[in-house]
């Protein structure tokens, strides 16, 4: 077999993967190995592949991903802490032909914004919610989140989360799956190539649901915060698989064929 020079492989016609054109040239402020970067990439790829850049409005949260608008080249509204679902509700209702999504962390969505997310999902807003759950407040320096695991140490529970003091970790995804307004509820991860592929499929499906007026699509991505967890990125992934996945099991919790209204009417008839 003839030896192939690297230069002969690296040619335009042999290209199989390159950065999405919807990702800007701004260097992400995230720590090395941060899951946010991977999920940003997937969102950008889905919007690019669907050709909906001009129809998409993103709503960024408060937290590490507050600057999401610096990285994905679409119109964005930067919401106050926890309020992204309310902001997205109005955008979608006032511009029903647009694709509207929120991108929120666990502190934003599960703590301060618990009311907004539950009610947006319960109204069945035709939006996509991307929920990054790394069980910690990253931006403010690693404090306890509602999703922090029992026994897991953080800056505000340095001896580990204690149920008697801090209550239980909150499973938001299970909670919103109960609501008739949601049509697609899934829990994904992004630590391996296979997981990334699955996660992207879920995001694509969620965006496509908006066209079908089916209700809220909710995607949790179980993620790492290697700085907050004080581990290197590879170790953080291992820790996540060992400790996070048993409590936050991956997979679809709900995937309705019909719209919430149709499902609800059927249920009432029965």
């Amino acid at each position: 077999m003839a030896e192939l020079d690297i230069k002969d492989i690296i040619r335009e016609e042999n290209l199989v993967y390159k950065k999405s054109t919807l990702l800007t040239d701004n260097v992400m402020h995230y720590c090395p190995g941060c899951t946010h970067g991977v999920v940003h990439k997937l969102v950008a790829e889905v919007i690019e592949e669907m050709g909906i850049q001009e129809q998409t409005v993103g709503v960024s949260p408060v937290g590490c991903s507050v600057f999401a608008y610096n990285y994905i080249d679409i119109d964005w509204s930067e919401a106050a802490h926890g309020r992204a679902p309310a902001v997205a509700t109005a955008i979608k209702r006032l511009m029903p032909d647009k694709y509207v999504f929120t991108y929120q962390g666990d502190g934003d969505l599960a703590s301060i914004g618990a009311a907004e997310i539950l009610h947006a999902c319960n109204r069945g807003e035709d939006i996509v919610v991307i929920f990054i759950n790394n069980a910690i407040y990253g931006m403010t320096g690693g404090q306890m989140a509602p999703t922090t695991l029992v026994g897991m140490p953080t800056a505000t529970c340095p001896y580990g989360r204690d149920i008697s003091l801090n209550g239980y970790p909150l499973k938001m995804t299970e909670l919103v799956a109960q609501l008739p307004g949601t049509c697609f509820v899934t829990r994904q991860s992004a630590q391996s190539a296979a997981a990334v592929r699955k996660c992207k499929k879920a995001i694509r499906k969620a965006f496509e649901n908006q066209n079908k007026k089916k209700g809220t699509s909710f995607i949790e991505v179980v993620a790492t915060c290697n700085s907050g967890w004080k581990m290197n990125p590879v170790k953080a992934n291992e820790w996540m698989e060992k400790h996070m996945f048993p409590f936050y099991p991956l997979g679809d919790l709900k995937d309705c064929e019909k719209s919430p209204a149709e499902e609800y009417n059927k249920y009432m008839e029965e």
């Binding site: 077999m1 003839a2 192939l4 002969d8 492989i9 690296i10 040619r11 042999n14 290209l15 199989v16 993967y17 390159k18 950065k19 999405s20 990702l23 260097v27 992400m28 995230y30 090395p32 190995g33 941060c34 899951t35 946010h36 970067g37 991977v38 990439k41 992004a190 630590q191 391996s192 190539a193 990334v196 592929r197």
Partner: peptide, 22 residues
């Protein structure tokens, strides 16, 4: 082997992948 796994997991999208059949 140009499987793109590295590019998929890269948080900063800094990897471009090429593949050719020999």
């Amino acid at each position: 082997i140009g499987c793109v796994n590295c590019a998929l997991v890269c948080p900063d999208s800094v990897i471009t992948v090429y593949k050719v059949k020999v």
